[in-house]
Design a protein around this nucleic acid. Structure first.
Ligand code: FES
Ligand code: FES
Lengths: 142, 142
DNA sequence: TTAAATTGCTATGCCTGGGTAGCAATTATG
DNA sequence: CATAATTGCTACCCAGGCATAGCAATTTAA
């Protein structure tokens, strides 16, 4: 009923990196700053790195930084890299051909919200995001 | 990002039963009518039965019928019996204190939709549902 | 009486999201 | 050089949603 934790973690990490640009941050540092389980954070970072959203720097004093400028990273790409943006194209009720003739009782509320979220994801970059919200100190679910 | 299949199955079964009230329907009959995998349908029905939403009748020609009058079964009870209605109280981004001060970028779209869905769930009975939608022949996801 | 159809119940399996752990390779520091 | 800190990578574990299969008990039909 909401984004996966992996997506949430990724958005947090990338937003944090955007806020402190040009700084190389290690997994252990990010772990301390964002309260994301270390081992899992490692695998999330590896994944984001493989997908080009961040760039890994090996060796002592190594770490990660944004793979592109923050004004060129759209939130939709992040969601796509984790759970895939298709989650938003599914009918809330599990129907196959939802958006068309097959209208359930939740249909209107669901599609309206879906369109709004999609619009936000596709038109907000990390740079925009910095100006609109403040998620520096996380209180993410455990 | 949407209701579980179990919830969807349950809503379908109960809506179908409401439409044909006072008729005892076996699992295999419902399976044929609603295209829900037989074995899984069995366990869903057992669960709904244990929770009192439907009533099981044993023996040949046995089956299930609504546990209460259709005007006394609210959709929220059904969702509660399957995945729990709490899914709707979480921040879409994984924040802890969503509805209060901690506002993420999706907050407005998310809470608006959430309130609408909750309102529908808590104020719609199976009887109301019959008058508003038609989900008799399902094309549910496999 | 025997067989068929049914629910009640339990055990099992698969897949995915979330999470842990460890090892090799790389780089900086003492 | 030796050690510490780091990423890259892989293997593994666990829980829950989804699904299958089978057995016992009950009831009806032939
Ligand atoms: S038919 Fe898909 S949300 Fe209603
Ligand atoms: S703070 Fe995220 S949806 Fe409310």
């Amino acid at each position: 009923m909401n984004f996966t934790k992996t997506t949430s973690y990724s958005l947090h990490v990338l937003a944090y990196m955007a806020r402190h640009e040009n700084k190389i941050m290690s997994a252990s540092y990010l772990h301390r700053q964002l309260d994301i389980p270390y081992s899992y954070l490692r695998s999330v970072l590896l994944d984001l790195s493989r997908k080009g959203l961040i760039m890994g720097v090996k060796g002592r004093n190594g770490g990660f930084c944004l793979g592109r400028e923050k004004k060129d990273i759209y939130l939709s790409e992040i969601v796509n890299a984790t759970e895939g943006i298709d989650v938003l194209n599914k009918c809330i009720m599990g129907y196959e051909k939802c958006p068309f003739d097959n209208v359930c009782i939740f249909h209107s509320a669901w599609t309206r919200m879906r369109d709004e979220i999609l619009d936000i994801l596709e038109n907000t970059t990390l740079a925009d995001h910095l100006n609109s919200t403040d998620i520096s100190k996380s209180n993410i679910n455990q």
